[in-house]
């Protein structure tokens, strides 16, 4: 068990090294001269040269790469070209909003998704089941920007229940629509997946054994069936963090929220390379860690994995 944890955790290291490399390559091959971006149109050739030298941009690529690795590991990611804040500071100041959104959306997706999925599976072919299947199909088919706009129109403009834009003074009510917008898709996916794995599991022999023991139906479903059905659901949760991170960009843009997603979109339009690098690295790291967590929780849910 412990060895499994260690092995999995060590396995993350090469992935992170690879991520850093990819981020470096991407930001190096895109067109645009950082020095010129920093100086705008006013830079004369002498100053530009000086700045390039200062930033190490005149060095050969492999030297830049080594320097980049060093910078990443010392958390020295440079400063924004625009407002001179360090990258770390920028991320730190934007993180709370994004984390609230992402975690809130994930909690809603998992809690509602799994419960509705179980309900659907245990009430197969009833109208409730059909209803949840139709809504989850719509949820999967609708992109975040569409869901977001529709929600704003209905709940903010027509009904006026919740604010549709901005953060106010950070009250929770401002988070309601963004969290729902972001959570709908992963929730819909989890509903369908839970339903189908649950249906598969309740026909397994060991569920028949559990019933034959005289267990209550609740114990049969929630103890014997659910733990088995959750294994594929956990996989999806890990993979969904990726679409959550991209969803964050859209959601924050729609609702004008000052989070990491908005930061990265602004950085891209401004060619603010240090920020782009920083945010992309950070998100990649989050994704890797989320999947590490998923891998580790397999060990808890499925004993067959620990020993292999």
């Amino acid at each position: 068990m412990f060895a499994y944890f260690i092995r999995r955790t060590l396995g993350v290291i090469p992935v992170i090294l690879g991520v850093i490399l990819v981020v470096f390559i991407l930001t190096t091959i895109v067109p645009g001269d950082p020095a010129r971006i920093m100086m705008g149109q006013r830079g004369d050739p002498e100053t530009l040269k000086l700045i390039r030298k200062e930033m190490g941009l005149d060095e050969p690529t492999h030297v830049q790469l080594v320097k980049f690795y060093k910078d990443v590991f010392t958390l020295n990611l440079g400063r924004s070209y625009r407002n001179n804040m360090t990258v770390i500071e920028s991320i730190k100041s934007r993180l709370p909003v994004t984390a609230t959104l992402a975690i809130g959306a994930m909690i809603i997706a998992v809690v509602l998704g799994v419960s509705i999925g179980i309900y659907s599976a245990t009430h197969q072919y009833t109208w409730q089941d059909y209803l949840s299947m139709i809504f989850s199909l719509l949820g999967i088919a609708s992109p975040v920007y569409f869901v977001g706009l529709i929600m704003v129109i209905i709940f903010a403009r027509k009904l006026g229940w919740v604010p549709g834009t901005g953060l106010g003074n950070g009250e929770w009510i401002y988070y309601v629509l963004p969290i729902l917008t972001l959570g709908v898709r992963p929730m819909a996916l989890i509903v369908r997946l839970t339903r189908s794995t649950m249906l598969e599991v309740v026909h397994q022999d060991y569920v028949k054994t559990a019933r034959a023991k005289g267990l209550k139906e609740k114990a049969v479903i929630y103890k014997h069936a659910l733990k088995n059905a959750l294994i594929p659901v956990i996989t999806i949760i890990g993979l969904q963090t990726a679409s959550l991170l991209s969803g964050v960009m859209l959601t924050e843009t729609i609702y004008s929220l000052p989070g990491l997603g908005r930061l990265s979109i602004q950085a891209v339009t401004n060619r603010d390379f240090p920020i782009i690098r920083g945010v992309v690295l950070f998100m990649a790291l989050v994704f890797v860690l989320a999947n590490l967590l998923v891998d580790l929780s397999y060990g808890f849910f499925d004993p067959r994995i620990r020993y292999e």
């Binding site: 397994q204 054994t209 034959a212 014997h224 088995n228 499925d302 004993p303």
Partner: peptide, 16 residues
């Protein structure tokens, strides 16, 4: 009480 045909699948894999 009852025992079933498939001992390989009649026990729940995730409990001791």
């Amino acid at each position: 009480s009852m025992i079933f045909q498939e001992p390989m699948t009649s026990l729940n894999p995730v409990y001791t």
